[in-house]
């Protein structure tokens, strides 16, 4: 198992991160060392062992769909880096062609 610099670049793009060449080298080396250590899990026989996604078995917690107190528009927008009227503002998404 060997993770290449290219793999790291691919995973970074999936995670919406970008790295400098030095960071790419560092993460390539560290991810290899960490994930190689984790290879030991392959020695465990997990045939017919179910996955645990939670520590304590909980089922879906449903509640009545009733209106309750919630944040005002103003409160919701207060931490926004940029807002306009009642909306969060982001850079242009659609190319005008």
């Amino acid at each position: 198992m060997n993770i290449t610099r290219k793999d790291v670049e691919h995973v970074a793009s999936l995670a919406r991160l970008q790295f400098s060449p030095d960071e790419l080298d560092l993460y390539t080396q560290q991810l290899n060392s960490i994930l190689n250590h984790f290879q030991k899990l392959q020695n465990v026989d997990t045939t017919d062992v179910p996955s645990s996604t939670h520590a304590v078995d909980v089922n879906n917690a449903f509640r009545e769909d009733t209106a309750g107190p919630s944040l005002t528009t103003e409160e919701s927008l207060k931490n926004a880096p940029e807002a306009e009227q009642t909306c969060f503002k982001v850079p242009k998404i659609i190319e005008v062609g």
Partner: peptide, 24 residues
């Protein structure tokens, strides 16, 4: 990065799923 790698196509079974089973 570790988490995204462990969940990415082709590695999910070997990493995330395996870890969830050993968690059991």
């Amino acid at each position: 990065m570790i988490g995204t790698y462990a969940l990415s196509a082709g590695y999910y079974d070997a990493y995330y799923k395996k870890a969830s089973q050993v968690r059991t």
